[in-house]
Amino acid sequence: MKRMLISAVGALALSATMAVAEYPEKEIQGIIQWGAGGSTDTVMRSVTPHAEKALGGTVVMQNMTGAVGAIALNHVAGSAADGYTLLMGAENPMLYKVMGLGDKDYNEFIPINILARGTPMLVANNDAPFNTYGEMIAHIKANPGTVRFGSTGPGGLPSVVNAMIGAVEGELDVISVPYDGDGPALTGLQGGAIDVMPAVLGAAIEGIRAGNMKALTVFDTAENKHLPGIEAVTAANAGYNTYLPWGPFFGVFTPKGTPDDVVAKLGAAYAEGAKNQEFIDLMEGRGFTLMGISGDEASAFLSKWQQGTAWLLHDAGLSKASPADFGIARPGE
């Protein structure tokens, strides 16, 4: 009996070490937080096949939508921390706590790779009576309560950009029309349902190139090479330097507690995948800034992003709870 037990334990130990040595020994599940065809989906589906090659395994990607991504996040956070369930997400979980959308965020995860960051910008309907950021602000101040801004719900990119504008220019009297995503909002913009939309550059660039909408400004500290001649918002008002650069990001995460060597393998695989020229071309073509950070650097980036954005929204009166309640320090404190 005793010998049997020993050999059983031995076999178990052996198989455990083998499992680690041979990771991945089965299919890996990649849970995409957003729907098929969206930005997160596209980024993940284009980088993962290259990462698979480096990893020597298969990552089966699956979209799990609902509750602004919280369902996917909770699902992965609740699965075994063995590197066989990955979360492929965007920036918004870092706002779940202050927005009252959930009690978990990326702090429950180890970042495998934060792949890229998008640049926000303001686009306007072609018939809008302003062509630059300065003209827009002047027009809104002269005609309070007439300009229609598109938004995508609390915590979305437009709400953060609006909070920034409010913090820098003072409260603006505009009508905020809610949409369920920047795609439908940009469609509404072209049809004249809204006048201005804060959107990520990649989503708007083709429409601007075709002349179906016009670019007002780029929310960055410098001009963007995809939009020559469109001034950065910091040139119009230096007050934005406090908040920029800021942007939504995409990353691959694994639950905390995943064995270090598995994290290392996944990290190496995604770092390799992100170096693929096709992926780089694709990302740059869509106006994304490649980041490719992981480990402590990624964790530092995440907490800085969370501090800045959470407090910005809180100060604008858009949050449900104070960031301080969750131990999120005010930037610079």
Partner: peptide, 29 residues
């Protein structure tokens, strides 16, 4: 316009994008 008419065309836009095309109003041109 590069705007999906339904859920399936939304995914196809993603597919075109992954294959290095720029789905949008300029695609026809």
């Amino acid at each position: 316009l590069g705007i999906p008419g339904d859920a399936v065309t939304a995914i196809m836009i993603g597919a075109l994008f992954i294959h290095g095309l720029n789905p949008g109003p300029m695609l026809m041109i």
